[in-house]
Write a protein that binds this DNA or RNA. Structure first.
Lengths: 337, 337
DNA sequence: GTGAAAGCGCTAACAC
DNA sequence: GTGTTAGCGCTTTCAC
């Protein structure tokens, strides 16, 4: 059978409680000599704590869930961006002794059950629409909502400074001289992220020149949807000279569509994206884009949730992380009229 | 407090065991009337099973781990391909009532502890080198090794038919007339996957024409490494007319490097990849590549592990899934000599 | 600094 | 068909 605390206790001639205290690093309660003796026996026997038993007794599991919405095809909506976040968070949590339960959410009503059933210590809600976050009613368990602008006090938002990102894009294009720009954004978006980018973008354009004309197009956040838009761009918006797309996948698709229709980027049309995904370096020209500070985002999410769990700190303010413009060549001066 | 079995039992006027049987669908042991009564009370009270308690008592957790090697930077090695696998597996397992624990593995010695600690019902080992899989010594717990050719009888390999995939690539290039081809593969590869692709590729070339010349280049599986190779391709291999890269990311990088160095794909050099990632459709020309049947791979991995858990079937044979060539325009006849 | 008692919520095994 | 008994391996609480 597997080694348990009582096996070690017997061999060391101490009580189970003492062994438990040693294993949990409660060194204040045990003498140094005992600690070493117990530790060495545990190592020799190859003791591995039984997590379910620990969770049951302590009603905390050292598990943090990564909850991700599932799409229409019922599989996880894992964008490259989401993946980087989850992978990074797992690393931070693992080093602090926590585990990550990856769970797709079909109906938002599954969220509370998922959390209660496992006595989760916390959860990271990845890219849910703000409206869903708004409706969450769970106390006691720290909840970090990534990329959310929900005002729900039970959740802590961690996101990029999308407003400033939008502003950078707008400033870059207007500085280059563009006065007729397409804002390409996903349809049916209940997420504050896009709204923030829009506000920032619009202010930058307005600040540059009151006469800047912006047209909004609804384009899904996929390469294919972007490509289709790129194909009809010149026909539908003959006077536009630049596009700001709210996501790199879409922007890369738009560039492909433009090229396929015989246009040139950036000579005929400038394109600017958002996210700074790997793929934005794969195109030619490379995609000029607004970079999110992913490592910081991940570290913040992990730090906040661990602080809440271990220090039981009070409600925290949401966090917005820095952005930066990355030049790669898809933006130039507008073509002569 | 939270609702537990005894609350329901009391309200329904039955024993805890009866409620437990109802909640676990052991309908053979309970009368229909009781089932309905208990069920409705449970629903009304909002009962959620306590998983740690269940795991402790039953010594099975309904958790399956997805174990992933961590890289030098200590974060999860999540290639787009890996991500698709994990996301798909999660979906299958969730629908069968299981949960996925995502865990990065720094040292291979962590694998047994991870499994024992949580009373895991099974584990999926994602893209570990064959040598690591070979050394695993865990009984009782079903282990699926993705993309492994290890002969370890304690694990079940699920992978693509890499040999045939390599063969398809070789046949496509030689059929087009190429007689001097570069095989670009990752260095220090302890994985059978690459070896299989190589064998298949070589046989196809040999079958086509004994005079086909193959040169092997070691290139990391990244866009950047591919690009660097593409840049020096013409200088280092002036007579080569085609490249077979063992991964799409690398192939896309190679295409970018070739273009940057002033070459044209496919007019000067043909390129063929492996994986059929999304990005292989983003380039122009698109990347001709060997497609893996991802949905089948995922479904097989999930099916095998669940079968082993629930039906406790004996040792199973490894599974290889189909491949298909996807034409996108990066292969043409060799340039005139 | 150490230990004894009690119990976390559930299920396996068997009795009725 | 339903109930009883026992215990999974650990932590909490409180006594010494």
């Amino acid at each position: 059978m597997t080694v348990k605390l009582s096996d070690i206790a017997q061999e060391a001639g101490v009580s189970v409680m003492t062994v438990s205290n040693v294993m949990n690093g409660k060194s204040a309660r045990v003498s140094k000599a005992t600690i070493e003796r117990v530790q060495s026996i545990a190592d020799r026997l190859g003791y591995v704590p039984n997590m379910p038993a620990r969770s049951l007794a302590a009603s905390r599991s050292r598990i943090i869930a990564a909850l991700v919405p599932v799409g229409e095809n019922n599989s996880l909506l894992l964008s490259p961006h989401t993946v980087a976040v989850i992978g990074g968070v797992e690393q931070h949590l693992r080093h602090r002794g926590y585990h990550v339960l990856l769970r797709g959410i079909e109906h938002e009503t599954d969220i509370p059950d998922a959390i209660r059933g496992w006595s989760l210590d916390g959860a990271i809600l990845v890219e849910f629409p703000d409206a869903v976050i708004d409706r969450i009613r769970i106390d006691q368990v720290p909840l970090v909502a990534l990329d959310s602008y929900s005002a729900n006090p039970r959740t802590i938002g961690v996101r990029t400074d999308d407003h400033r990102g939008g502003w950078l894009a707008g400033a870059r294009l207007t500085d280059a001289g563009h006065r007729h720009i397409i804002f390409a954004r996903p349809p049916y978006e209940g997420m504050g992220v896009v709204g923030q980018r829009w506000e920032g973008f619009r202010s930058a354009c307005a600040a540059a020149d009151a006469s800047v004309r912006i047209e909004t197009e609804q384009v899904h956040t996929t390469f294919e949807a972007g490509r289709e838009f790129g194909l009809r761009l010149r026909r539908d918006h003959p006077e536009a000279t630049a596009v700001f797309a709210t996501a790199d996948v879409m922007a890369v698709g738009i560039m492909a569509g433009i090229a396929e229709a015989g246009g040139r980027v950036p000579d005929d049309i400038s394109v600017i994206g958002f996210d700074n995904l790997d793929i934005s370096a794969y195109t030619s020209p490379g995609l000029t884009t607004v970079a999110q500070d992913m490592p910081a985002k991940v570290a913040e999410a992990a730090r906040i949730i661990l602080d809440e769990i271990e220090r039981d700190e009070g409600p925290r303010a949401p966090v917005s992380l820095g952005v930066a413009l990355v030049e790669r060549g898809s933006v130039a001066a507008p073509r002569p009229a």
